[in-house]
């Protein structure tokens, strides 16, 4: 049997290019280009590593405006088999609740799924809600903040990162797994696959296809109300400069003050 894997991805503004206007203290996005959320690249790589060992089909699902196409093509060029972009004017302004609902609805339209991967969080809003939300809407188990993910005979095994260590979890499919940022090295796109990806293209689904009503999604379906935004001034931290020779003393001092700890 071929394993059916879904990977949730998002196109985000390149965080390295977001600059803060020195006068207004607002984010200046005018210079910012869009990229694939980096933790989602790790999620796709986790899926591809399973596919390296077990026959599998990987479907990438995203919600976003049409320009997210570049991200979808990129995922196909890394090795995904199918790309679906849920795009509809009604989806604009969604918070994490209707986003989870929309993505879950798209996934439930697929014939079958065994494992869903998502990045631990997006770099532009950093909530980490959408992955777990999708698992809840679909009524399946979830393992969050994972690395070293493996699949064998209907079970997913993964390491969860906790405050004080790691936890190894084994769970039967279907399951949703959120993947830690930098937990693997995403493989590169190849020219061959990218040519094929451009020819194949992505599928675009609207909310009608998902049988969702406009009032359930987008800004209308979002319970969050933004009352006010404010920029917070960065607190000046104490700092000191040390020479190369003083580093061992510095490490000792930080250790004694319990700022750093030993990891086994």
């Amino acid at each position: 049997m071929v394993l059916e894997i879904v990977v949730m991805v998002k196109q985000v503004p390149d965080s390295q290019e977001v600059v803060i206007d020195p006068v207004t203290m607002n984010l200046n996005r005018s210079m910012t280009r869009n990229v694939t959320n980096r933790a989602d690249e790790n999620a796709l790589e986790a899926a591809l590593q399973i596919k390296d060992k077990t026959p599998a089909n990987i479907t990438v699902v995203s919600m976003g405006p049409p320009q997210a196409e570049s991200t979808m093509i990129e995922c196909l060029a890394r090795g995904a088999d199918r790309a679906i972009l849920v795009s509809d004017r009604a989806l604009g302004g969604a918070d994490t609740y209707p986003t989870g609902l929309t993505v879950a609805s798209a996934i439930s339209k697929l014939d079958h799924f065994d494992i869903i991967f998502a990045g631990e969080e997006s770099s532009d809003s950093s909530t980490g809600h959408v992955g777990p939300g999708v698992a809840e809407f679909l009524g399946i188990d979830q393992i969050t903040y994972c690395s070293k993910i493996q699949y064998e005979d209907g079970y997913v095994t993964a390491e969860r990162e906790l405050e004080d260590g790691t936890e190894v979890v084994k769970c039967p499919t279907p399951v949703l797994v959120t993947v830690l940022l930098n937990s693997n090295y995403p493989r590169r796109q190849t020219l061959r696959r990218k040519i094929d990806a451009v020819r194949k293209g992505m599928e675009v689904w609207n909310i009608e296809k998902l049988e969702l009503k406009p009032e359930w999604v987008g800004v209308r379906g979002s319970p969050t109300i933004v009352r006010r935004m404010q920029s917070i001034k960065e607190k000046q931290r104490e700092g000191k400069k040390v020479t190369l020779e003083q580093i061992p003393d510095l490490v000792k001092e930080l250790y004694e003050k319990k700022i750093i700890r030993e990891v086994h």
């Binding site: 190849t190 020219l191 990218k194 040519i195 451009v198």
Partner: peptide, 9 residues
């Protein structure tokens, strides 16, 4: 033309 970016020949 088919335009492919982000690939080093």
């Amino acid at each position: 033309a088919t335009v492919i970016t982000g690939i080093t020949v």
